[in-house]
């Protein structure tokens, strides 16, 4: 359907660099789904994929004055997206390792501490973070984090494999952490 629009990248770039939010919206609409879908594939989480889309286009808007110097907007977008995905994937990998280790050693996963927040604000923030999770993620998170069940117990309760459970727990943790770091800062301000 987009082919029917005249999508003239050079012209749009020029307009965006002059501050046209309309041209920005056209470019956003043209590329957002593509980036979003690939980000979901890579990060396995709609919320994290949304963040990637937002961060990429935020960068585009902030740097619009310099855009006339680039040759291909598509390449620019993909490179920025790629860098974001790489960073996020590393976070996920780290989190997955942590989940895996805590499973092997049967330890509980340590909490993300935000020293500058008092207890009440911290709890509130945490609750809001949990609201961002999908249904299964929420259940997994609830069982392991709040009720302190072991991975095996939790997998029996939810009737899923331990590996699936680990995946859910990983993306739940990444989501919660990313929400808390972003919004905790806001709270602080």
């Amino acid at each position: 359907m987009f082919e029917s629009y005249s999508y003239d990248e050079k012209k749009l770039l020029q307009l965006i660099s002059e501050g046209s939010s309309y041209a920005f919206q056209v470019v956003y609409d043209y590329h957002k789904n593509n980036i979003y879908i690939f980000a979901i594939k890579t990060l396995k989480s709609p919320l994290l994929a949304q963040e990637v889309v937002q961060d990429v286009f935020l960068k585009l808007w902030f740097e619009r004055e310099r855009l006339t110097q680039i040759n291909s907007l598509e390449n620019w977008l993909f490179i920025v997206t790629k860098n974001h995905l790489l960073n996020q994937l590393k976070k996920i990998a780290k989190e997955w390792k942590r989940v895996n280790e805590s499973f092997l050693e049967n330890n509980s996963i340590e909490d993300l501490e935000l020293d500058f927040l008092d207890k009440k604000a911290h709890l509130e923030l945490h609750e809001n973070a949990i609201k961002q999770l999908t249904k299964t993620q929420k259940k997994v998170y609830q069982l392991i984090r709040v009720e302190k069940k072991t991975f095996i117990e939790a997998s029996t309760i939810l009737n899923i494999s331990v590996d699936t459970l680990k995946k859910h727990m990983t993306s739940a943790l990444v989501t919660v952490r990313s929400f808390i770091t972003k919004n905790g800062f806001k709270c602080f301000l």
Binding site: M1, F2, K32, N33, N34, I35, Y36, I37, F38, K41, T42, A49, Q50, V53, F78, T81, K82
Partner: peptide, 12 residues
């Protein structure tokens, strides 16, 4: 992957 992914039916 970003270049290939041109399925715009589903999306954000």
């Amino acid at each position: 992957g970003l270049h290939q992914n041109r399925d715009l039916r589903a999306g954000i």
